[in-house]
């Protein structure tokens, strides 16, 4: 059953991505992008990353893509909508893409992931971190909001509880806090750029323009 669901989502994700690549109309590209990103969100749910799946839908599909379409509508007028790329570029891009894909897939297929994981696990156990589970704890599948919240608080209850070790596992307090500063700065920058022209002209700029 999981395989069937996976196949549907995977085909939709890849098909959407390929359609984005092939399509020449920007708005249709946006539509295919939505299909692709939405299916990736589905894959996240299948991987028991519920919070991430919902975030993907909310921020990517509902936010970023809407923003992109908004941008298309503000900038697109008739001919701009279907700016075609030259055939040479397409062939070259396609070939390079296939080469990279071939290398990646070859690498991924030739690694024996299961034995890798076992080795890593035993290595972690030797270092005295044997409590670290194999993969994301399947017992608590789906129950990700609280774990993520605690990790963002900087404390890893899922890893450090019931373990008497001197060092704390990686918590994500710093990125969580500093990203807010980043978002503030970025918001200021974006609003500055998108604002209408300033009221009084700057003589320096005009002279440079001419």
């Amino acid at each position: 059953m999981e395989t069937v669901i996976f196949t549907i989502y995977a085909l939709a994700a890849c098909g959407g991505a390929i359609a984005v690549m092939v399509s020449q109309n920007v708005v249709r590209m946006a539509f295919w992008l939505v299909i692709s990103l939405g299916s990736v969100a589905g894959l996240f749910f299948l991987l028991h990353a519920d919070f991430l799946g919902a975030t993907q839908l909310l921020i990517y599909v509902g936010g970023t893509v809407v923003l992109l379409i908004f941008g298309v509508m503000l900038t697109a007028s008739g001919p701009m909508l279907t700016i075609r790329s030259g055939p040479g570029e397409v062939v070259l891009g396609g070939l390079v893409g296939l080469a990279v894909l071939g290398m990646l897939v070859f690498g991924m297929l030739s690694v024996d992931w299961e034995s890798q994981q076992t080795r890593m696990y035993s290595a972690a156990a030797e270092e005295g971190r044997g409590e670290r589970s194999m993969g994301y704890n399947p017992e608590g599948e789906g129950n990700t909001a609280r774990r993520l919240g605690a990790a963002l608080l900087g404390v890893r209850f899922d890893r450090d509880l019931g373990r008497n070790s001197e060092t704390l596992s990686t918590g994500y307090l710093l990125p969580f806090e500093i990203v807010s500063v980043h978002l503030l700065v970025v918001l200021v920058g974006a609003s500055y750029l998108a604002r209408t022209k300033r009221r009084r002209p700057n003589p320096l700029e005009e002279s440079l323009e001419s």
């Binding site: 708005v27 939405g38 519920d50 799946g53 909310l58 509902g62 789906g142």
Partner: peptide
């Protein structure tokens, strides 16, 4: 039964706008 039910609900609801924009554009 998800522990992020509310979040997911809002997320899915926000997809509705896409259809409306596409309808308006197309």
């Amino acid at each position: 039964a998800l522990d992020v039910g509310l979040f997911l609900g809002l997320a899915i609801l926000s997809l509705e706008v896409l259809g409306i924009i596409l309808a308006g554009y197309s």
